[in-house]
Amino acid sequence: MQWDWSAVADFMPRFWDGVLVTLQALVLGSLIAFALGLVWAIAQRSALKAVRWPVTVITEFVRNTPLLVQLFFLYFVLPEWNITFSALTTGIIGLGLHYSTYTAEVYRAGIDGVPVGQWEACTALNMPRGRTWTAVVLPQAIRRVVPALGNYVIAMLKDSPMIATIGALELLGQARQFSAVTFQPTEPITVVGIAFILIAYPASLLMRALERRLVR
C-alpha cells in the first residue's frame, strides 16, 4: 500500500471546502426534516380521512424508496417542469424530504407517548385544539424525541455524500474531483471516510447520553 502525505496536504484545502458544504446541507436538510416531519405527524392524526390517508401513502412511499433515486428525480424532473435549483439546493430538499418521513415516525411515537389523560384534561378545560397541541402535547412529546431526532441527523450526515452524485461539491464530491485531476484516489477517499467516522462516532455517543438523560 502506498500512501502519499503530500497528496493529503494538497487535498486539505478542498477538504475544508467540502466540510462547509456538507455541514450546510446537514443543517438545512435537518431543519426541513424537523419541520416537515411535524407536519406529516400532525396530519396523520387528523380527523379527516382525506388528510390522513394521502399523507400516509406519501410518507410510506418516500421512506421505502431510495434517496438516491429521489435525488435524481428532483434533479432531472423538476427542470422539465421549469423549476430549477442548484445541485446543492436540490440535494438539501431531497435530504430534508426523505428524512422528514423518518422524523414523522419519531414525532408520532412521541405524541403517542403523551398519556390519553392529557388530551382528556384539555377537553375538560375546553382548550382549543391549537392550544392543546402547542401548550400541552408537543412540549411533552419533544423532550422524549430529541435523541431519536439526533440519531437521524447522524444518519443524514452519512447519506449526505449522495448529493455528490448530482454534482454538489460536498466532502465526497471534492474527493472525487481531486482524484479525477491527480489520479490519486487513495488519500482523498480515505481521508473523507475517516472524517465521517470522526464526526459520527462522538455524535452518536452524545445521542446515547442524551437518550439516557431525557427518555425516562
Binding site: K158, P161, A164, A175, G193
Partner: peptide
C-alpha cells in the same frame, strides 16, 4: 460510523 457510499467508493 462511516458513510455507505464513501465505503463503496
Amino acid at each position: 460510523g462511516t458513510s455507505a457510499l464513501v465505503l463503496m467508493f
